Simulated assay, not measured.
Amino acid sequence: MIRRSDYETDRGMSIALTHVLTIGITTILIAMLLMAGSTMLESETERSTETALETVGERLAGDIDNVDRMADDSDDVSLVSDRPRTVSNSGYTVTTLSADDCGDRAPLLNDSNPCLELDASSTDVTVHVPIKVDNGIETGTSVSGGSLEITYTGGDIEITEADR
């Protein structure tokens, strides 16, 4: 025969246990959602940074091409290329690489043209953009993103930070 006092004690334990399990499962689910959300946000930030660096690099390559074409008609050419200082809340550097270095660092580029290497500082994103110049370009120089001056003075094309 079941006594009433045993039944009431078991029922009280069952409610407390249910609450503890519910809170535990909810906590685990929320923690998993937060981890998945942060991973997704990080990958989206990297993708956004890569796209922005590609855009900046292609526009800078276009400006270098313009200076190269103008250098055919003149001995001294200077162009200021205004680019953003940051992309996706990250500063970046622009480095000119020789054709051999481009082939080593960027396997999708062939060894026939020099390239620009754009490297974001706060994320692990590096982009390579090929450039085609007839007059030659000074390689191995690095400049921070922002206003850049592209000059040709009878030798190679050079990229420096603009004085503004």
Rank of each mutant, 00 (worst) to 15 (best):
M1F: 05
M1P: 08
I2R: 08
R3E: 12
Y7G: 01
M13T: 13
M13Q: 11
I15L: 03
I15H: 01
L17F: 14
L21Y: 10
T22M: 15
G24F: 03
G24K: 09
I25M: 05
T26W: 00
I28H: 00
A31W: 04
M32C: 04
L34Q: 06
M35P: 00
M35A: 12
A36H: 11
S38F: 10
T39V: 10
T39W: 01
M40V: 15
S43T: 13
E44G: 14
E46S: 14
T49Y: 07
T55V: 14
G57C: 02
R59V: 15
G62F: 04
D63H: 12
D72M: 08
D73M: 14
D73H: 09
D73I: 09
D75P: 13
D75Q: 10
D76P: 09
V77K: 02
S78H: 06
L79W: 06
L79K: 04
V80E: 02
D82Q: 15
R83C: 11
P84C: 06
R85F: 14
T86N: 13
S88R: 08
S90E: 10
S90G: 06
G91E: 03
T93W: 11
L97W: 11
L97Y: 11
S98M: 03
S98G: 10
D100M: 06
D100V: 11
D101P: 03
G103L: 04
R105K: 13
R105L: 15
A106M: 04
L108N: 03
N110V: 11
N110K: 04
N110H: 07
D111R: 11
S112W: 15
N113Q: 15
L116I: 05
S121A: 12
S121T: 14
T123D: 03
D124Y: 07
D124R: 14
H128L: 12
V129L: 11
V133D: 07
D134Q: 14
N135M: 12
N135F: 00
G136L: 02
G136D: 01
E138Y: 13
G145I: 07
E149G: 02
E149S: 05
T151F: 04
Y152A: 06
T153L: 15
G155M: 09
G155Y: 04
G155I: 13
D156G: 02
D156S: 06
E161N: 04
E161W: 00
E161G: 03
E161F: 03
A162T: 08
A162I: 07
R164K: 13
R164T: 11
